[in-house]
């Protein structure tokens, strides 16, 4: 093969190489399109199947008993919001304080280890979180609960918030800290009042992205929140969530439930996309390249 190429005249060989380069460029472009295609395919079907099933009842009513048409996912929407709030209560303080430690304290060596464990923690499958929280909170209290679901989601948020907090704190100019030190302000005050405040937008961005990420999680809720077809009056009761309800309806044999699953998925996706887009607008100052 290479021998035949060698006896070709230089010009012919050059045009062949040019052609090959162009062909590969086209191929890479097609691959980039293929990577993006699933997003549009999913969004297209979400809107096509979900929009028609979406009505006012969806947001205000409880699920109807098996086989009855109509009903909604009001309790699931509230359940998702409740558990997200609880997740934030756990994930944000731990994550932000951890991020502060990484950015402001600690030796480089120790921090490398902490970052490493945070990344490994981030890679733990979400279903495993469900099992662990089941042992820690469901078994001792003998009931599935909103608490358990919130804790599972909150623990998943910790490494996400920690890493983004560290990233934005490092961007705060050193001069700000030095100015504080020169004025004799205590370090913890410099960090909370000057550094964190300067980077607050970025920290909020990181928190919202982490919340958007766990809002769609189903696996950690299966054995913690469990799901509920009715309103949960106490946080110590099983509670529904949008992803759980979508899952239950999607694998059911009923057409009407399938329609509801699409509607639920459309709402969930809309919430997640809105969170992500608003975050992008919020952090517009920090663009790449």
């Amino acid at each position: 093969m290479s021998e035949t190429r060698h006896i070709q005249p230089a010009a012919a060989q050059h045009s062949w190489r040019r052609f090959k380069s162009g062909a590969m460029a086209g191929l890479l472009f097609v691959c980039a399109l293929l990577v993006m295609a699933p997003l549009f395919l999913v969004l297209y079907f979400l809107i096509r199947e979900g929009a028609s099933a979406l009505d006012w009842n969806f947001f205000t009513q409880l699920p109807k008993p098996t086989g009855e048409a109509g009903g909604g996912m009001a309790n699931a929407i509230v359940g998702t919001l409740v558990m997200l709030a609880m997740a934030a209560v756990i994930g944000v303080p731990l994550g932000v304080m951890g991020g502060i430690y990484l950015a402001e304290y600690g030796s480089d060596r120790a921090n490398d280890w902490i970052r490493f464990t945070a990344d490994v923690l981030n890679g733990i499958p979400s279903i495993v979180w469900g099992m662990v929280v089941y042992v820690l909170l469901v078994v001792p209290f003998k009931t599935f609960s909103a608490y358990a679901g919130g804790v599972a989601l909150g623990l998943m948020m910790v490494p996400l918030v920690m890493r983004t907090t560290e990233e934005v704190l490092i961007l705060v100019p050193q001069g700000y800290r030095e100015a504080g030190l020169a004025l004799g302000i205590a370090r913890w005050k410099i960090i909370t009042v000057i550094v964190v405040k300067t980077a607050l937008k970025g920290i909020v961005t990181g928190v919202l992205v982490a919340m958007a990420r766990v809002a769609g999680e189903t696996a950690p809720l299966l054995f913690t929140a469990l799901g509920n077809n009715f309103w949960s009056h106490r946080l110590s009761e099983p509670i529904s969530a949008l992803p759980l309800q979508i899952f239950t309806y999607a694998i059911s044999p009923y057409d009407d439930w399938h329609r509801q699953a699409w509607a639920g998925a459309l709402v969930l996706m809309a919430v997640i996309l809105i969170l992500n887009v608003s975050v992008r607008i919020l952090s517009r100052g920090r663009k790449f390249k």
Binding site: P38, L39, V42, G216, W262, M269, I272
Partner: peptide, 23 residues
């Protein structure tokens, strides 16, 4: 393009599953 790929990463697993079953 980067934004679109990040959005793809934000799609929840259960929605891919729903789309997988029916599409």
């Amino acid at each position: 393009i980067v934004t679109i790929i990040e959005m793809l990463a934000a799609v929840p697993s259960v929605i891919f599953g729903l789309w997988g079953i029916f599409v």
